[in-house]
Design a protein around this nucleic acid. Structure first.
Lengths: 356, 356
DNA sequence: AGGCAGTGCTGGAACGTTAGAGCAACCCCA
DNA sequence: TGGGGTTGCTCTAACGTTCCAGCACTGCCT
């Protein structure tokens, strides 16, 4: 009568069993729809469970079945940097969608600091609180992941990790994508002197995008300059004066949209015209590039689809699937989104009607 | 010798105990730095644990201690809608920061669909896989939360929930903030005929922002129009023609930045000048409003700080703190960010130098 | 009549951890 | 010399679940 006064001690299998008058095992089996339990008993058990508001204690289940029904989304970098990036939102959307479909929880695992970071995801995975992990934005030099993979834990990487050939990964071909962006400025817009604004060069994607730029420029015999940035809008703005100093450049290939925006905003403020004086193309298409004026042409990175596929593969791994060596790495296609900053789309009033 | 061949069966307390030659309990106590274990034994145990790569099995610990060392971040709406919003990123940043500080994991809990949603967070909380929850963006009509709160489970709400007076919540004063925005257009810019673009009116914040707009307008005797939107950029664009038809309006107060942007982009495309013909002010300041041209004046909502405080309060609750009735609700201050769309900041080139 | 295959349940052990009770051994002071 | 306190461990019983082995009972075939 005076039940659930404060923090209603959770109802367990035993409570249900007593109510129905069967054993605990019978209740457990009934709730799993085991064939060896009679239909009538099952019905009575399910009714009682509903009435008492029974919910399986996930810790006990995890302990017994050594299955947590949860996956981790691991972000080794500091949360400031990555969450600030719209990339993460797309990834999270993809991961949760697939996790939901598999009735699994998603645990977000960030490392407070770089040094403690190594041990952070190590602990999560080995503590048995998750069945596997998606690892995103890992620093190039991280060896902890290698160990996890070598120990046979289900791990899928998001991005390209040439130094981890055995790990399952889902990424894009950054080199080829950067070539396409560069060639677009050269071939579609006739630009002959290009500057590339790089990301931090300890990130594989930054390296690859630079290499793609250089390869395409070399192939077509156009002039090249390199300015180093760090993927932030500020670093793009900071690169502005350096680009101004390069009198003859007529095209900018930025390693992401934020830097493109930072540089563009600076140069527009100094009276340079985009795209007339300087054609600009960015990279990522995570939202920013669509809403600026001029809108920024870019290489669309299908982050959500990458996350979806990575998570699908993770559940395959958890399910016990073995991956052939030549199937370890999946590459998603990228797409050139031509907007105003390269000159493909006219400036001015007519942009109201475009659809997604 | 042939250890850890495949999925190295995780090392347990027992493995460490056998290695050192003590009992399992001794190892458990040593790792918790219990005073009744000798210093030398502790040292030997810790060394062995390190060597064997021992990590506490969190399921077993959770089962035994009925403490999961994890909190849930619950997003009842469909993931599409909410993750698409930069709001969530700020919230996640705040929540993970505090969770890290408390050595707790963060579980993201989204409901695949609206109907199934109710049971979703109910299950998460009652299954014992988390110690408490932050609930964000809950629909106004949700009664499941009421039950959780009534059952004494640690729950903190993000936003204002006037129909849940007992629940602990952290929010802003949307009415007052909307009044401030509206008064800014009236007093600082002399606007006399205002249109308000609302959010979905089953959300408390949308209701409050509309009410604040109406109150301020009435107080200053300016004309008002209401156009209903749903917080999306598309609904802002769709409201564009309706606003055009309202010939005499000279100010737009949008319930968020995305709608302000949608409407503004449409109207700019039709030859209307912002801010000259129409002063625009938005709401949120989650990123978009800073990067558009013209940049959008807005009410800054300190989402990350709200999340930080909510999570702090959650851990207080988990720690057993009782909350006095008059301390249940915390209100964070909002701030007017005056940019170009209302006329405060000049248009054109000079915006390169602004800092965060 | 005996065996034998189902059917429908019960009993009990195990998962890895924690914590309270218990117990030797020691030291100190009366 | 013996009682009382401290130190440093061990033993054991949980926590709630799952699952295998067992067991009684029915029905059927030979």
């Amino acid at each position: 009568m005076t039940e659930r006064r404060k923090v209603a001690a959770n109802t367990t299998l035993r409570d249900v069993a007593e109510r129905v008058g069967v054993s605990v095992s019978a209740v457990s089996m009934a709730l799993q729809d085991h064939p060896r339990i009679g239909d009538d008993t099952k019905r009575r058990i399910r009714e009682a469970a509903d009435e008492l508001g029974y919910v399986t204690n996930s810790a006990a289940r995890a302990l017994r079945a050594s299955k947590a029904d949860a996956i981790a989304l691991i972000v080794p970098n500091t949360s400031q940097h990555v969450f600030g990036h719209a990339y993460f939102m797309h990834v999270l959307t993809g991961v949760t969608a697939v996790a939901n479909r598999n009735d699994a929880q998603v645990v977000i695992s960030t490392s407070p600091d770089e040094s403690h970071g190594k041990v952070a995801y190590d602990r999560v995975l080995r503590s048995g609180s998750v069945d596997g992990a998606i690892v995103t934005s890992a620093a190039v030099t991280d060896d902890g992941i290698q160990r996890l993979v070598a120990d046979g834990l289900p791990v899928v990487l998001l991005g390209r990790f040439p130094y981890l050939p055995d790990a399952v990964s889902v990424g894009i071909d950054d080199v080829r994508a950067s070539e396409l962006a560069t060639e677009h400025l050269i071939q579609a817009h006739g630009r002959r002197a290009l500057v590339h604004l790089t990301g931090p060069l300890d990130h594989q994607s930054a390296i690859d995008r630079r290499d793609g730029f250089l390869a395409a420029a070399a192939r077509h015999g156009v002039g090249t300059y390199i300015v180093e940035g760090d993927f932030s809008e500020e670093s793009g703005a900071a690169a502005g004066p350096q680009i101004e100093a390069l009198g003859d450049v007529d095209g900018l290939v930025a390693a992401n949209d934020e830097m493109a925006f930072g540089a563009m905003r600076h140069l527009l403020g100094r009276g340079r015209r985009v795209p007339e004086d300087l054609a600009v193309i960015g990279f990522d298409d995570f939202g920013l590039s669509r809403v600026t004026t001029p809108s920024i042409s870019t290489m669309h990175v299908p982050a959500e689809r990458m996350a979806t596929q990575a998570t699908d593969r993770l559940f395959d791994l958890i399910g016990g699937a073995r991956v052939a060596a030549d199937e370890a790495h999946t590459v998603q296609p990228v797409e050139l989104i031509a907007r105003q900053s390269c000159g493909c789309e006219p400036m001015g009033r007519a942009q109201g009607g475009d659809k997604q």
